[in-house]
Design a protein around this nucleic acid. Structure first.
Lengths: 210, 210, 210, 210
DNA sequence: TATGAATGAGTCTTCATTCAT
DNA sequence: CATGAATGAAGACTCATTCAT
């Protein structure tokens, strides 16, 4: 059941990225503590010593792996839906859809790792919460509030709704990364998101109230 | 400078429970691997050797802790809403509410532990998925289908709806056990559940369609 | 493959002897270090605490077991053949036979234990060597010398002959206690002793030389 | 007060042999259980971790040490006397002499180790008995039988004689490795073997019978 | 750069020993 | 006397980290 590490062409520039990729995969599968540097190195096609050429410690590698994965997503998040002239409903749909898509990617579920290791990496958790979680949530809240203000939605607790909106996608993403074989969830995250949004939009539409 | 050894207390009956409690707390905070048996023992007020009187290994302790926590909830789950004459809507509300309450308890979030360690305890994960997760989900699906059959809900994918229904509660429970201090979520799980159910029921009511 | 300890009638006086018996058996089978006090206690039908009522430590138990077994044999050894009017040949035969018989008994092979643990119990070894080994050998040497002096045997190295005389019995006894199942030796020790003595007597008889 | 760590030496090829040598010595002196891996490592001039680079466990090290020592002797045993045109008497002398010589070497007394630990390493014991003990004994029996067939020896139990022949050498070898200081045996094993053979040959010669 | 042999602090686990009952 | 729960020192084994090559 050992996945064969790909024979890698020796491109020196790619090394750190390859190591991070291997690390993420294994941290995901077994958790931080249970993952051995030996395994990471072997999976990345290098030796343990090489890992230390690029990362000063296992902890540093973990942090780098998390940050490296988060970083590119950070900026993209807000642009997506912030500056648009469409209706709040439409912009929410777009935002959720784009986010669900990014969750579908292999690297989507840093969430699981952060949940598992939060207690052991408080500063990293803090950074993650502030820069990823709260920002993302704030975006949702903003869009929901816009919908309320525009009369598209009836007045509801935007924060609470934000939570209910991203929960199915986030939890399913975690689930899929955790119990892929034991409890496979066949739904696509986009499909799930659309399904939920439909119901919720229907449930909070102002017009329905009359 | 000889520290006096503590007077030995003999409380055979209480020991295992105390040790499990300590273990759960620490496994939760730090993960399985990062938790030292010394810490568990110290936290439980005994010494390492005593832990081994009751649990044959760290792994056995982990499994016992999980099972011990799951067990009492297992049977209660279905009774709750299965045998009732109320409407599907009402029974669904009751079920979600009872479940959200159980999640509020300290032991509610075995989920987090299982997610973090699933890769390292496959058989335990299998047991958990089969006896807890699938059973709970099946109950929801059953109630939703009943609502569809009775004309209370419009025909929708019951499985998908089940996922969207428990996701906010489950994820928030995990969140609270993970980022209690960094990202405190003030909502009560029951409150969140009611909020979500209201919207969803409104969104899937058959009468609204006309 | 666990031999059932006999259910013992609780005769308090017999306890130490029962414990020693159990200890000897297990020390024999597994060696001193590998034998757990728990096992000894269980085999003797008591609890660990009880062992400490009679023996102050595992080491003390080991020594007591060895000495207890050696003691009764000590005095008997010399009487056997010392004061006799028979020929040296006859007295040697009697001595060897009596000694082979004692080796046949269950407790015969303290030798094996002493060999295995000599490095860890130097004083005990010293005692054993001085009181058992050297005394026994001296007896043999004495009888051989008597035979030489009386003209029964041709003049040979009595010490060396003593070694060759007891070696087969001693080694076979050890062997039997060690490889009973893997390499069963069917010969009776007395039979073996007689066989060897016959050849040796024939080989060293003075008359044969002529 | 910081002790300077020793400069690391890299001698991959020599390591296993050095470790085995150290292990054999200590297992011999103290027995398997009583020997600490730390001691073995220290004695071999490495640290504990290094031992585990070459041997997966203490048990594996023990087995490797035994086998490594036995192996080279295995084949040599039979060649020695099997294919020779000399008289059985002569070939027996040669075989015993060659075997006594090998027993004189430091590694000669695996016997003692095997005796002490037979109970704890049944498979290893089995291998030892089958490949070393029985083969060696069979050789002796074969040569004795040849002597009987050729009329050199009177008809006797070859198996029993084999036992009496190797016992003095084997037991003395064990003795020397065990009680070197308490009961030094000054005889050379070859000397002892020759002495014994002389007597026995004299005792079993056919001509003597007449 | 890259290697991988070597290290040693850290953990799990065992078990002789103690002691309250 | 006898028990057996509790102890804690000791030992096997792991693995992040270092460093000579």
């Amino acid at each position: 059941m050992q996945i064969n590490p790909l024979p890698r062409q020796r491109r020196k520039e790619a090394r750190p990225a390859e190591i991070i990729e291997a690390a993420l995969l294994l941290f995901h599968q077994k958790g931080y503590s249970a993952t051995k540097l030996d395994d990471i190195a072997h999976f990345a096609g290098v030796t343990k010593g090489t890992v230390y050429l690029y990362f000063s410690s296992k902890e540093a590698l973990f942090k780098a792996a998390i940050l490296e994965t988060i970083q590119p997503n950070l900026d993209r998040i807000e642009e997506t839906a912030m500056n648009s002239q469409a209706s709040a409903t439409q912009r929410l749909k777009t935002a959720m859809s784009s986010w669900a898509s990014s969750m579908n990617e292999c690297k989507g579920s840093i969430t699981k790792l952060m949940i598992a290791e939060a207690g052991n990496f408080p500063e990293l958790s803090d950074f993650y919460i502030e820069t990823v979680v709260k920002r993302s949530r704030q975006l949702l809240i903003h869009l929901i509030q816009a919908g309320i203000d525009s009369g598209e939605f009836r007045p509801i607790d935007a924060h609470m709704l934000a939570i209910t909106l991203f929960s199915p996608i986030l939890l399913t993403s975690i689930w899929r990364h955790t119990y892929a074989n034991l409890d496979p969830i066949t739904y696509d995250l986009n499909q799930l998101s659309d399904f939920h949004l439909d119901i919720v939009f229907n449930g909070i539409a102002l017009s329905k109230q009359s």
